[in-house]
Structures are given as structure tokens and as C-alpha cells.
Computed example of a mutant assay.
Amino acid sequence: MKRVLTLTMHSAHNYGAVLQAFALQSYLIQRGYKNEIIDYRPDYISNEYKIIQLKQNNIPIHRSIVSSFISLPFRILKSYRFNKFINENLKLTNNTFKTYSQLQESNPKGDVYIVGSDQVWNSDITKGVDPAFFLDFVTFGKKVSYAASFGKEYVKNEEKNLIKKHLEVFDAISIREESGRGILENLGIKKSELVVDPVFLLNKGDYNKISKKPKIDKYLLIYTLENDPLVTPLARKVAEARNLKIVSIGSFINRYKSDYHIRAAGPEEFLGYFMNADYVITNSFHGTAFSIIFNKDFASIKLNNKRGTRIENLLEITDNKNRVVERKEDFGKILDSIPYHFKSIKIEEVVQSSKNFISENI
């Protein structure tokens, strides 16, 4: 039995980060591989999810302190739920590594090393090019990326040579977004494959085993990473048309004045709210992904930045481009239900192609 070690941002208290790590590991184990996630927890990830954040972006320090302490009980509960999920559902290496040098010194042994998915090659997140996420510590074994993401459309000129040097020795490279393939080609790396995010490797039944069903029923779910003025009027229009309550998952403040605001959901609760929703409004990549996996009617609010390209790519390959909302004039077109019985064949094709990449390169 091959021992496959994966490296990703599994410890981030972010729904997409944790669930994609769970999905890739679950799929590998289902396929008969022995898999552990390398427990790499650099400070730039750990510090981002500290329970007490005394300094928040664009907020005066005194307001940030007050906000942090008012929301403290919810932060504690959410952190507990994430840690519990990670401890109970992810198989990690026995050793935890806080720095690249620790990882390099230990050099955990495997037959195949997979980096991805998530924005593991986004130097804005990793505070420069982190050699760990380019598997530079590996001295023996295959190096493979699965659905790795740069999280942007270009890399800094001063980083290009280093990134190219790291990736030239990979045995197989797959990328999550078309924009990432463009970056690779610009670096002179011509051979790469476009694959789906790991969350698509599992089916609804797999997620049903770990989800927690909410006590609320007949509702529209809002999940956004960035506030958008279109969300509230759109939610009210859809909810009124379908006679639904409005539920939102997110930060401490109920920005959309929803009927129910969920402040401390863990990954299991997050899945439950998506799985049981009658309609979803989101501008999140993984919010869009789970809407598609669970065959939900949804609206994808277009982000006003380049991060939105990964959502656009996802909607393109799953034949859901018509679910994008950019202005109020778009509201009418997303009231119709999605004919998933027609779209399922295309979705299954791209998922199977991604599964083929894994089987052919491990």
C-alpha cells in the first residue's frame, strides 16, 4: 500500500480550507491509499485565526479591542468546533511542524507527496514563497500538486525564478484555475492539468455522514466572504417569491438583517446549513461549490476583485455561468430552478477527469 502524504492549509479555521483537506484525504483513503496530512502550522496561518484579534484591518484599535471582547464567546465556540473537527476527522502526522526548517529536518517519509488544494502558492498569504508548499523538503518520492492555486492572475517578477525552480522538479502538476495555468505557461512550465477542487471528489452521501442538520427548515442561506449591497434586496426578493426564512452564516454582526444569523458554526454545522437550504446566495468559492454538489438553486454574487476569477472558472466548467449576479437587473434570471438533471453529465465528466489525474500520478 502506497503511503501518500498531503500538504495543505488544513489548520486554518476556514470552512473551505478544512473541508477540502478532509475531502482529498477521504478520497485517497477510499481508493486504498494510506494517507496522512503533514501537520504544518506556520505562524502566518495560526496568527490569522487567533481567538483574540486586537488589531483588525481598517478598524481603529479601540473599536477593534471592544469588538474582539464582545464577540469572544462566539470566537471560542467556533474555534472549539473547528479544532474538534480537525482532531476527529483528519488523519495527521504525529509531529507538528511550525517552521519550514523543522519540516526539512524531520523530512516525513512517503512514497508520494501531494501539495494542495487551496491557495498554497499564493505568496500574499504565505508571506513570500514558502518552500514547504513547493515540497522542497522532499528528498525521495514523487512530487505532485492537486488543484493547487496561486489565488491571483500573476506572480511577482522577483518570485518567478524561484517558483519555476521549485516546480520544474515536480512529477505532475495540476491546478485549480485556468489563470494558474497561464502563470505556469508564463514561467515556461507547459505541462499541467486543470482539475476540480477536492470537495467535488466526494458525493452528498459522504458529506451527510459528518454534517449536522439545523433545527430551522424552509430557508434561504446567505454565505458571503465580502459584504455586498446586492445581497439584502436579492435575498428578500427570493425569500418572498419562495416563502422562505432568511438564514446567514458569517461574522459576529448580522449585516444582512437575516431572520437567523449563525455566528459560530463549525464545519459540520456549515455543511448542514448548505445541505438543507432551499436556496443559497453566496460570493464564496466553496459556497458555490457546495451549492452545486448539493444540487441547490443558488445565486453567485460577482466579486469586484480578481479573486472572483476562480468562481467564474468553476461556474464555467459546471455550466452555471447564468447564475452570476452583477446588478439588480440580474435578479429575475436566477429565480428559476437549476436543471441539474441536464447539467450532471458535464459535472461528472470534469470530476472523473480529476479522479483520473490522481490515479495516473500516484
Rank of each mutant, 00 (worst) to 15 (best):
Q104C: 13
S106T: 14
S106L: 07
N107M: 14
P108S: 11
G110L: 10
D111A: 10
V112S: 04
I114W: 07
V115G: 01
G116H: 11
D118K: 08
V120R: 03
S123W: 00
D124P: 00
D124T: 11
D124L: 10
K127M: 09
D130Q: 07
P131F: 08
P131D: 07
A132N: 00
A132E: 03
F133E: 02
F133A: 01
F133R: 00
F134N: 04
L135A: 03
F137I: 03
V138R: 03
G141S: 02
G141A: 08
G141E: 11
G141P: 12
K142G: 04
K143T: 13
V144K: 02
S145K: 03
S145P: 03
S145C: 08
Y146M: 07
A147L: 07
A148E: 02
A148W: 09
S149G: 01
G151D: 06
K152P: 00
K152W: 01
E153R: 15
K156N: 13
K156C: 04
N157T: 15
E159S: 08
E159Q: 08
E159K: 11
K160F: 03
N161I: 10
L162I: 07
K165I: 00
H166R: 12
L167V: 11
V169S: 15
V169C: 12
F170L: 09
I175K: 00
R176C: 05
S179A: 15
R181K: 12
R181I: 08
G182H: 02
G182W: 04
I183G: 01
L184S: 02
N186G: 15
L187Q: 10
L187K: 08
I189T: 04
K190V: 04
E193K: 11
E193Q: 12
L194D: 06
V195S: 02
V196W: 13
V196N: 03
D197E: 14
D197S: 08
P198Y: 10
P198Q: 06
P198R: 05
L201G: 09
L202W: 08
K204A: 14
Y207L: 05
I210S: 04
P214K: 00
I216D: 10
I216S: 07
Y219S: 09
I222Y: 12
I222R: 09
I222L: 14
Y223T: 04
T224A: 14
E226I: 13
D228A: 10
D228L: 09
P229Q: 07
L230M: 10
L230F: 12
V231P: 06
V231M: 09
V231Q: 11
P233F: 13
R236Y: 07
R236G: 15
K237A: 14
V238T: 01
V238S: 03
A239S: 15
E240W: 07
E240L: 08
E240N: 14
E240M: 11
R242T: 00
R242I: 00
N243Q: 14
I246H: 06
V247A: 04
V247K: 06
V247W: 06
S248E: 06
